[in-house]
Design a protein around this nucleic acid. Structure first.
Lengths: 197, 197, 197, 197
DNA sequence: CCCTAAACGAGACGGTACGTCCTGTCTTTGC
DNA sequence: GCAAAGACAGGACGTACCGTCTCGTTTAGGG
């Protein structure tokens, strides 16, 4: 077998898709304890071998399945620090209050104990931190923020504030909280910005 | 037999204690995937029946085991709003950065999907909210806070800020972050209070 | 405490009765594998301690419970060897084909594997052998049988023949076979007697 | 998928063999109370799933394990009815007096209440009846038996006689009875044949 | 007439086994 | 050589049972 050419049937990318979708759905619906490889294979209409060809174990499968859904926070540059931060807060709120909010939240925390998950979690947090840093830097350059504004505190209060707001919402009030999320993002940012301007 | 008298041998409270301690230790050490009822029974020196007499399943056992450790936030009245809030922030930071921090964090989130866990999680959050409300009310009465200060925003930014700070800490930096937790609590509170005074 | 006098509440003989009856009923209905001490206690309305006060374990309880029910074969003297033997054959057939035939059969055989049960089984078999011996002896005295007739062979062929006939009957034909049992007993005895007369 | 072709890995016949051997050995060594599926799996070096794939429960496993050892009665054609019947009687005596005699007996009876056991028990009894029928038919053809000899009575008296003889033997006399089994078979057959010749 | 002591119903206790389900691997048939 | 199917060794889950123990209550005889 010459290098570069692989003999045999190539892997079907649609199978990847079916597996990860099934995994994400099952984890979202029943949590870790209701998440079994057998069930994923059944729901995806796939043999277990096809799963273990791609990932070495259950954790890796879960991480891969949810990593796709856990899109990193995107940097936003509206020209206004306030609007940038509002967008950031909204991204966090929507991530945790949205359709797969429960799954994402669970994964985020569970990732800390799954070695392979650390990496993805870190990546997510890094992207968040990077976005915040960029926003603050631009704000300082424009003179909208003081030159010694703490990125850590801004990020913790806004991102953590949004996280807390989503986490505190009891299951039955989740829809109401989600409906008011955009408005809350503005209030939160305005509240925090009073400290730094 | 008159009501109030229960026939049969009464349950041994020490057995409750042994089981929940073993459960907390095992979950803390190996996470959910390394947490088996058989192992709990072995470590506690207890028959499985004695576990299933008390809790209907694995999840309920775990919730109960960690709920005991998840002491509600205590209300504090130092006479100064600032010091009260610092104490609150420290309680949150210590809860999540302390010995069983990871376990507690995981449980807190997982509880949302375990029916029996809802109750305990809610209790914890309620105690937190109540403490925050009391602190703010006293602050307003003393004139240390404006009369229309938002309890929600204060709680989300401080408690959520602390939570985020603990959550963001990568496993290998956990000890450093824990060491600086007290100092960070002050910075966080001072930062937030600039908005309201 | 002086020897011979026992202090404390005396054992209630009715409890013995309730326990052994419940045990016999349960064993008859579900066999050894469906025979549990808990179930016996429940059905008898008795605490398990009261059972274990009387018998050291499950086997001993079963043996004691069934010993009473396993009534020995009754000796019959009609004046005719043929009629005596027909009566014997009918006793065996009815015992195993009757209402509790399955239970008795199971019990008879099961007893052989429970050490303590051997004794009771032997007692039953002895009564059978004694009855047969008496019948044959009277037959010889009356000149209806040859003087060297083998009791063993007569008993084995008649009693064993009846046993085999009942045993071979498949469950669904059991009623038919039971209906023809009386007639079969006569045929069997007449068949065997042709050898000895 | 066309009918007749089964997908997936086929069952390993050697696993069947290992399981039934382990089951027979354990039952023989420790009796019913020392017969556990877990122990069978351990001794056979097999997962419990592989056992429960093949048999629905413990009883069915035991029946299957012993049914294999319970070789059907073989037809014998010595040219003499008397010798054929002696051979038949010896097969029955040896089956119930042999090494696993008690186990076999118990199983034979217990089988009546275990659905899966019916089949094997019937097979055994059918083979016995078929052998007897063939022996009698040949005897009639050769003129050694009367043309209207009852197969049922012959089978019941000989097979049942042998069964009864084995059953009656107390455990402590079992060896003696076994030693005299061959001789008893001849006496039994000669006794019964006096009726039909 | 109370007091001691044992029997009683009830049910918790530490263990073990049951039958089901899951994990990660292996082995088959088809493509 | 990938895909689907499913058998395999191992082990956890939640239930039921065994034989022991600890409750509170009941029923006797002895002082």
């Amino acid at each position: 077998m010459s290098a570069g050419t692989q003999a045999g049937r190539p892997r079907d990318p649609e199978v990847d898709e079916r597996i990860t979708r099934a995994a994400a759905e099952l984890f979202g619906a029943h949590g870790w304890s209701g998440f079994s490889v057998d069930a994923v294979a059944r729901r995806a209409g796939v043999g277990k071998a096809s799963i273990y060809l791609r990932w070495p174990n259950k954790e890796a499968l879960l991480v891969a399945a949810l990593a796709g859904r856990l899109s990193g926070v995107k940097d936003i540059d509206t020209g206004s620090v306030r609007d940038d931060l509002v967008a950031l807060a909204r991204q966090v709120l929507n991530a945790f209050l949205g359709e797969d909010g429960g799954a994402l939240l669970r994964l985020t925390v569970e990732a800390a104990s799954v070695p392979a998950g650390q990496e993805h979690l870190d990546r997510f947090l890094q992207s968040q931190a990077a976005a915040a840093r960029a926003i603050v830097r631009r704000g300082i350059e424009r003179g909208q923020l003081g030159p010694d504004t703490s990125v850590t505190l801004l990020l913790d209060t806004i991102s953590g504030g949004a996280l807390n707001h989503a986490l505190v919402a009891p299951a039955r009030l989740r829809d109401q909280v989600a409906a008011g999320a955009d408005r809350y993002a503005e209030e939160l940012v305005d509240f925090v910005l009073r400290s730094v301007t």
